[in-house]
Design a protein around this nucleic acid. Structure first.
Lengths: 345, 345
DNA sequence: GTTAGCACTCGAAGGCGTTGAGTGCTAACA
DNA sequence: TGTTAGCACTCAACGCCTTCGAGTGCTAAC
């Protein structure tokens, strides 16, 4: 459906205005804008057309207009002006990221908090899904007379304290045996048969208690096979309280409960199949509760399937332009870091 | 100041009622309770007295009464009936804790979520301050051509990926050298002189690049000396939206911002010097924003200075009795686990 | 095609009377 | 002397009504 240049401008003006004020916008407000010199009457006619076309909605007869979901969609697709992030802001961002090149999950969390700081909306981030995790090393450390810590190194490190007394020598023996037999193990390799074979070999070699062996190996296998649900973080959730859309505490409360629930989040993020940066506006969301929210999502990845997503969630009248720009930049930065971090990994 | 038995009963009834309804309670409501057979007129007289004494407040002339901070204080100190946790609830709790004896910070986080589930208020928990952490083991794992992971085991495990190429053999040599010289090291031992001495020794022995050595050792020392700020978690923050006290979104928003800020939390928890379980009611809190909240805090510890705190934060009319009982039980369970966990540690 | 003008609509805000829960006081009662 | 019934009084909450004004659609003139 084609719109005349004038209609486009008017629609854009209405949405821009509404994004700023959250109040229905009237014809007078638009006609007072410098960029198009038309009387309010003309604007009214055009707005009536735009309403017929489904881009605007009138909450009631004597009110101004509010964008419909289709209106927002059109805006995002064709009208929105590119938001230019300030040079300092970008520098700032890069500096911030550089300071923190430590743990992966930290980077991601941090990225989330930056995203919400930039946009002032709530942010959902998923940590990169672990690809195939491969066992790099197992270590056993005596903790006390009765306890031993098992440290398993894959892409990350996992440790657990098990209730069993092992001497330093025993730890040494067991860990070197495990490392010998299991190094390079991936989740694909873990089958019950194979594993009990390996367990036998190790037992043979170490002469250790069966129970001890079982428990240590179980932890090792669990760590490798754990197709850990990609972790999900939410930050700046409380920002929704700032927006008049959520003046109603009930509503805000429901939203909180929904977004506090990791299952919901996961479903939300998973159901999103788009690539690159894209928005889901209002009714485009499946969840009833999100019908008057928009979700802007970008995925960061290395092209190797390893990656995650960052979503910004806010009222439908969010500042799409700014959100798109922020997410774009952030995901770029993350990509850079991750590529650096996992090269040849 | 002594209160007659009857006044005590009436005060208790008023507070119990108010805790349930959040509405000013009138004389009729009290007189209808079975446990004291008095007409509303008599109750009125007594309530007037209690108001004179400062335990009750009348929001306006023709309203019922609301407890004052002093009223709550008296209630908590002398009136409150002991809440008996159900046997099943306790069993449930114990089972829950037993399932999760893994990482310390996990236990604590978990305890926090249990506390908020039981009480339905927001919960603040501080992880135990690390005592003197002692180096147990250092491990080096080659990650790629250019990267090596350093794993440092103390009470917990910390790892970092450093940008340096080390072969497997080099890793082996370096880590065994470090383990030989540094095992058992505590933060007390870390002085510049001593450390550069040790570094020399290790270098002598391993013939490794000075830069590599410096970076690995720096991470090790940092890990040991890090007097990590006791970590602070908040859970169930959104529960405050449920209470009519926070029907006003503005207020709720302020509260959120306040409690999202870790500095505030830290200050809040630190300023609390009490031992055992205790409450801070309304104006007993220093922060203006908490003037109509109460904070119930319990510390869990091992008597060795190692320990943390759990606080429940809610409206002044919180169910003190239940909160006290829940926190008491939870802190007991944590104590048990921690004692078990760190015995001879 | 654009605009000025006008009648019309309807939510928001404010004024006003009613209602009812609750009080304090007084006088009678046990 | 303590308790209670009764009554006048208070005041927030609620609903009703009016007013106000922002905004509309339509018509007629430019």
């Amino acid at each position: 459906m084609d719109l005349s240049e004038r209609k486009r401008k008017i629609l854009q003006a209405v949405i821009d205005e509404y994004i700023g004020t959250a109040e229905p916008v009237g014809s007078r407000a638009i006609s007072k804008r410098e960029n198009l010199n038309l009387s309010s009457a003309t604007i009214r006619n055009e707005m009536a057309d735009l309403e017929d076309m489904g881009y605007l909605i009138q909450p009631h007869t004597s009110a101004g207009r509010v964008p419909s979901d289709e209106g927002y969609r059109f805006y995002v697709n064709s009208l929105m002006e590119k938001y230019q992030m300030g040079m300092e802001a970008i520098m700032e961002l890069q500096k911030a990221f550089q300071m923190r090149i430590t743990r992966l999950d930290q980077i991601i969390k941090y990225a989330g908090s930056i995203a919400s700081a930039l946009t002032d909306y709530a942010t959902i981030i998923t940590a990169p899904q672990r690809g195939l995790s491969m066992l790099r090393k197992v270590d056993l450390v005596p903790i006390s007379n009765e306890k031993t810590m098992v440290v398993v190194v894959t892409d990350g490190v996992k440790s657990q304290v098990l209730d069993m007394p092992l001497s330093e020598e025993e730890c040494e023996i067991l860990s070197s045996a495990i490392n010998k037999y299991l190094k390079g193990l991936t989740s694909k390799d873990v089958t019950t048969d194979k594993m009990s074979g390996i367990k036998e070999q190790i037992r043979e070699k170490t002469k250790l208690d069966d129970d001890v062996l079982t428990r240590v190996l179980r932890f090792v296998f669990e760590t490798i096979t754990a197709d850990e649900d990609a972790e999900i973080y939410v930050s700046n959730l409380q920002s929704i309280l700032k927006y008049p859309e959520y003046r109603d505490v009930q509503k805000a409360g429901k939203m909180f409960s929904f977004l506090e629930n990791k299952d919901n989040l996961r479903r939300l993020v998973m159901s999103d199949s788009g690539e690159g940066i894209h928005a889901r506006i209002g009714s485009e969301n499946d969840d009833e509760i999100l019908k008057d929210c928009s979700l802007v999502t970008v995925d960061y990845s290395l092209g190797t399937g390893r990656g995650g997503k960052i979503s910004v969630i806010g009222p439908k009248r969010m500042n799409y332009s700014k959100v798109f720009a922020s997410l774009d930049t952030i995901s770029g930065e993350i990509d850079k870091i991750l590529r650096y971090y996992t090269d040849n990994g």
